[in-house]
Design a protein around this nucleic acid. Structure first.
Lengths: 159, 159
DNA sequence: CTATTTTAGTTGAAGCTTCAAGTAAAGATC
DNA sequence: GATCTTTACTTGAAGCTTCAACTAAAATAG
């Protein structure tokens, strides 16, 4: 054990890189999505998670988990997406506390039309910079960090 | 070349992990800093970058670069930090367009008192989840992504 | 040297996120 | 089976970020 209170060279590099990616990557993806369809990366992700869910609906809590968002943030955003006709709120048959968010046809059309451009942007902005091994390493390390931040995060469920 | 328009398993894992880290890590660090000193991670970073600069001052543009922020965002935040007595704005002697942000003594005291807790949080939330090799890999891969997002980003300058 | 363009920064408004408080149903406790 | 606690949300206000518009100085072009 050396000093517990400061970062060594690699730790500092890793931390600063992550911090920078954290600011620049969402900003760049937001710009692309804003130009393509006047929505944010978070909006896109909400629609994407619903589109991949069975029946294209999810309880708000589950949708919040899959977008790593607070229920409050999600609630505001779903209200907005609802006004745009992309999502509807429905009651849950078995539990009256639960609100189910349901992707509409229009919402599905939107995400289908946006997905190719968005995926291209993700490739152009990060994946194309990396070798196959890098991608595998990042997946492995990234999931370790996610596990540390939230030990039953949904992306860890399938493994 | 296979399909350019979709992600394979590792790519998807890497992307989703990064997206989740991106939401959860700043939120957790914000919570810690909010509790310790009523400031955000971004506020902290502005103070930290100034504290590490020679003379503890930097032109707004340079400070914006080192915090990966827009000049507009930085301007608003510096105004806030100024009201709290942590930063001052000064004229640049050689170029009248430039505003120099200068860390005050009180600002320095603040960052000195907050740094240990913040570094502990960074360790607890991400570094402790990783082996030394992981840290080195993340530093290497992270810098590749940063280079792709901004090929003359300041964190790449020293190398 | 005058006009144009670029650089550096600020500002106010609009939109987004967080925070605290509140509602209501479900589950647990006694 | 009444009370207490927890779960699942929603809401409004406050604060933060982005966006577009603006000012002013420096650099460039003609």
């Amino acid at each position: 054990m050396t000093e517990p209170h400061w970062l060594n060279a690699d730790e500092r590099r890793a931390w600063l890189a992550l911090l920078s990616i954290n600011t620049l990557l969402p900003a760049a993806l937001d710009t692309q999505l804003q130009a393509a369809g006047k929505l944010s990366l978070f909006d896109y992700n909400v629609l994407a998670m619903l589109s991949e869910a069975e029946g294209r609906f999810l309880p708000m809590s589950e949708l919040a988990a899959r977008t790593s968002a607070s229920l409050s943030r999600l609630s505001h955003v779903v209200t907005k997406l609802q006004r745009r006709g992309w999502v509807e709120r429905e009651a849950h048959p078995g539990d009256a506390r639960v609100t189910v968010a349901h992707l509409t046809e229009a919402g599905m059309d939107t995400i289908v039309s946006l997905a190719p451009g968005h995926v291209d942007a993700v490739r152009a902005l990060m994946l194309d910079a990396m070798s196959d091994d890098d991608v595998a390493d990042l997946a492995r390390i990234g999931e370790k960090i996610v596990a540390r931040l939230d030990d039953d995060h949904w992306i860890l469920r399938e493994r």
